[in-house]
Each structure stands twice: as C-alpha cells, then as structure tokens.
Design a protein around this nucleic acid. Structure first.
Lengths: 293, 293
DNA sequence: CACGTCCATGCCGCCAGGTTATAGAAGCAG
DNA sequence: CTGCTTCTATAACCTGGCGGCATGGACGTG
C-alpha cells in the first residue's frame, strides 16, 4: 500500500478541523479534492476513518488510532530529510525575489569562506507561497518579506528594510512625477497575489494605508513576468525599490511612493534547531555584507 | 516536501542492489523510470544520494544516512496501517480466483459467527501479483495458489489440493476426449501469466512435467476474461478444477488431465503476528468448512 | 419556505510517472 | 583497435490520477 505525505497532511488537517470545507480552506485546495482523497485513504486501508454527517467529519475509533500515529510518521520523515542534509552539508535556502536576497553571490561567497564544507542551494519560489518553501519543508531557511502568513511558526530575524515604490505603465499620467503620493493610487487597479496568501496579499495592496478605501484588484499573478505584463497592461503594483534594478520592462516604470511603510526583509527558519551552526554563519555573512553596503 | 512510500521502496531497492538495472528488474519497472525517480528524490532533498558510474550506483555518505532511516519509515507506516485495522476489526483478505476461496460466502458467514465484531474485506487481485496483494501490504492475509514467488517471506498454511485440468477451444480435437494426457498438450500454445510472476508462471505452464519439451506461449494475460478469450482464440491453458464451475465461455471446454500435479491452495500471511486471533478463527472457519464438504 | 452549510458527483484539463527506443560512456576480450 | 557487454541518461509518447469548477442532495434554521 502506497501513500504519500501529502495525503497524510490532508488527513491530519481534516481530522483536526472536523470538516472538509474547513480543512480545504486551510490547505488551499478545493473541498471536492479532499472528499476524494479521504475516500481513497479509507478504501486503501479498508477502514472507515470518519463518520460523515451534515455537520462535518467526525473521527471513528479507527480514525482516532490512525490520527494518533500520523504526526509521528510525518515527523520521522522530516527528521530523515534533516539528517540527510546535515550529512551532505547542504543548506537549502528559499527566496522570492532577487532583491530580497540582496547581493546573493557575494553573500554565498562570504558564507563559503566561513564554512567551506557547506553548500548553499538556492531555490526560488513564486508568490503562491510567501514563506518561500519553508511552510512545506522544502527549504531549511528562507529570505522572506515580512510579515508573511504563518510567520509565528518560525524563528524570524529581520535583516533590513527597503522603501516601497510603485510600478506604473509608462504612459500613465503619474509616470511623469518623480514621486507619487499613495493616495493618488488608491483608485487604480492593483496587481495582487493569490487570495491564499492572506495578510501578505493585503500588505502589498497596502490595506493598512488605504484609510478604508476599497481595493480594486486588476489582476492576480504569482510570477514576476506576469506581474510586469499586468502592469504594462494598465494595472499598478507596489514593489520594493530593488525591483527597479532586477526587473525591467519597456512599458513599465518605477516611481517612489510617499505614504506607504517600507518593506521589511527577514531570514526565517524552522523552530526546531536544524543546521544550527551553518545557519548562524549564513546570518553572519548576510549581516556583514549589509553593514558594508 | 512530499514523498510517497513507493519512492522510498524504489530508493531502498536501488541502494541495496547497487544498480538501477538490477533494482528495476526486482521491482518490475523499467530502468528509465528509476533513473527519473532517483533524480527527483535527489532534487527534492537537494542532496546527491548516489555516485553514478558505469558500474552502478554507489551510495554517498548522505545516501547512506538516508538509507539507514528508510526502513524505519516504511515500518512505521506499516505499523500504523496494522493498528488501524486492529481497532476497526477489519481483516483484509486477498484472493485470485473464486475457486481458491472455495465457498466464500459460507466461510465468511462461519467466521462472522465466531468473531461477530470483525469484518472481512475481500479483495480480488489479478495474476500480475500471485501473492494476492500480500507482497505489497494491501491485505492482511491471502488465499493463494502454491507455490508463489516470495512465498518464503510469509507464513503459509496449506488448505487443500485440487486437480488441474485444461481449458481447450471447443473445436479442438482433444475436446472430444473425456480425459487428456498431458504429453498430448506439450506442443500446444499455452496462455501464460506475465514474466514477472516467475516460478508461478512456470508452474501453470507445467514446466516440471514437460520432460524438457520447450514451452510455446500463445498469449500472455493477467485477467480471467482475457484468459478465456485467449483459449477461445486457439490457445490452451491449465486450470484448477473449480475453474470449470466459476468461469465459462461458449467456445471453451474443461477437460481433466492426467500427468500434472494437482494445485495446492493455501492461506498466507505476514511473518509478523498481525491480527493473530482473528486470523486463527478465519483459518478454523475455512478448515471446518473444508472438512464438511 | 427559502436559505445556508455541509458532503458527494460529473466532467474536464494537466502533469507525474510509466513505457519503449536509443544514445553515450567505459570496461573487456580477441 | 574493434566489437560486445553493461551500465546510466535522454527523448518522445501515453495514460491515469489529482485537482478545479459547477452542481446536486441532504438537512437544519430563521
């Protein structure tokens, strides 16, 4: 009988939540997907795990037994991944955009000098996961934009802040000004991240700075190229200052904005002490690099 | 990071075997499939697990670390499945053909009387797995035809024997005789099981009774309906006497055969003592039923 | 009686994982 | 040196599983 960890995570969520609908929302999948998965799990085991009712999914005795073992299974898997990485001396580092990592190659080079036996493996993630792979255990640490959903579950060290500006279509009237007031942008259609990113999405729509003015969402994207295209197509989007250096598009311009808080960049890692020494050294390398620039 | 148990089993096989080609043969999958899977595993972990060379795949240090943990992971998973079945009082029973199970409903009914709290879940398997799901952990016990590949890994109790006869096309010359000598069949094209079933396939081709005459394989099938069609199409196939009762086809006849050993039917279960009491009772029910008929 | 809130089902599109065929590299025998 | 063998890697293709959307059905509630 084959099963994968995703199915176990699904099951754990449904068991805790008590409803498919609720678990689906938490896992960012559709409710029918969970219906099917839970049924498949029951079929494979040959055991009814849930008692269905209009009010939700209640665990049966067998379901409780199974549920009591799932965390250990997932934990052991995670443990195995960590241990393997430790032996291989590989540090998986997630990031969302080049700007957040700052001078990536220099930081890595600095780190290599301090920890010649370790290797850093960089992984870029799109905006469907603001934790840059940390939430799914795909990386050991991640350079993230704060705040991000689920942040409380991790150890976060703030690295630096960076002003936020705006990307505008080149022929937009405001493109002529050197600096834009945020309130001038409030009625523009914004490019937003997927709704599964919650507070993170709101932060990049500057929900806090709107004084109650409703958001107009002009497009939803999760990748830089789509993002730029959407702006070229007439939307606007807040962006960190570094975006002006790392991304460019002929029909898109970057302008400073007054009236929005800066973007905070941090290094996040799991609460469990994984790769302690190496991570410490990485942090050192980053801060040394920052203090120099 | 999501992974499934199949991938872990693949990895374990490659690690033990030392070559993809060898492991592929053992797992009955193609070698390119393993190439891709092992690479994916390495990519997901961000770690080189194997040192490749023309002579095979050697584990790296990290690979050894990972390999040392895989058996425990698979074991814990198996354990969880068992425990859940124990609480739910479900006994998963595999079988290949109705004849082997004998009078299924009666045995089940008898079992229910003795163990009213337990439920038997029957699962039929095709001939691609002569262990009827036991090898893959899909069932707790299985009614099998002996001998079957991998039999040594299980506890097997022989239940009864049954004469083997032959299925012939209705218009085959030998169909006129009441009884056929096996040597008259030696040059006929036989229907065979897939080559992955090894000795089991040979047994149903009566390899031992051929005195060295080579086998002519006329068709390869893994399911009863294809099997009958192949016979209707001009092949012949050995079959247990009960097949005459449970399977029928207008253009196929069953005839007794002299000169082949009978088929032995047994109950097989895992070496680890799972569902001890219930299995004991099931065995009782079967033997009671057998002694009565 | 209409509405909200669950879970279940049907249909569709996509991708992971499998297969076969073939290429490439390297040892080994003659 | 050449041809044979034995590995792994790559390419092209096919299929089934999984997820998404839309909808249905059951049932409690205002």
């Amino acid at each position: 009988m084959d099963v994968d960890t995703r199915l176990l995570r699904y099951f754990a969520a449904v068991a805790e939540e008590g409803t498919l609908t609720g678990a689906a929302a938490r896992l960012f999948v559709s409710q029918p997907a969970l219906t099917k998965q839970m049924r498949r799990l029951e079929d494979d085991l040959g055991v009814r795990l849930f008692a269905r009712s209009r009010s939700g999914m209640a665990l049966t005795d067998a379901g409780r037994e199974f549920a009591s073992r799932v965390p250990a299974l997932l934990g052991a898997w995670d443990e195995a991944v960590q241990a393997t990485g430790r032996v291989a001396r590989v540090l998986r580092l997630g990031f969302l955009d080049a700007g957040a990592v700052g001078a990536v190659p220099e930081v890595i080079a600095e780190f290599r000098r301090a920890q010649p036996k370790w290797r850093v493996e960089l992984r870029q993630f799109d905006w469907s996961d603001p934790s840059a792979g940390l939430a799914r255990g795909e990386v050991d640490a991640a350079v993230v934009r704060l705040p991000f959903p689920g942040q409380g579950g991790f150890v976060v060290r703030e690295l630096f802040t960076e002003d936020r500006g705006v990307l505008l279509p080149a022929r937009h009237p405001l493109a002529n000004s050197e600096t834009v007031e945020f309130r001038e942008l409030r009625n523009e259609p914004f490019v937003a991240a997927g709704s599964e990113t919650g507070a993170w999405r709101d932060h990049w729509l500057a929900a806090e700075e709107r004084d109650g003015y409703p958001v107009r969402v002009g497009a939803v994207t999760s990748r830089p190229d789509e993002w730029l295209s959407a702006v070229a197509g007439g939307c606007v989007a807040l962006a960190p200052a570094s975006a002006a250096r790392f991304y460019s598009h002929p029909d898109v311009v970057f302008r400073a904005v007054r009236g929005v808080s800066p973007s905070r960049v941090g290094l996040a890692r799991s609460r469990r002490h994984v790769h302690e020494a190496a991570l410490h050294e990485l942090l050192q390398a980053m801060t040394r690099r920052l203090s120099r620039s």
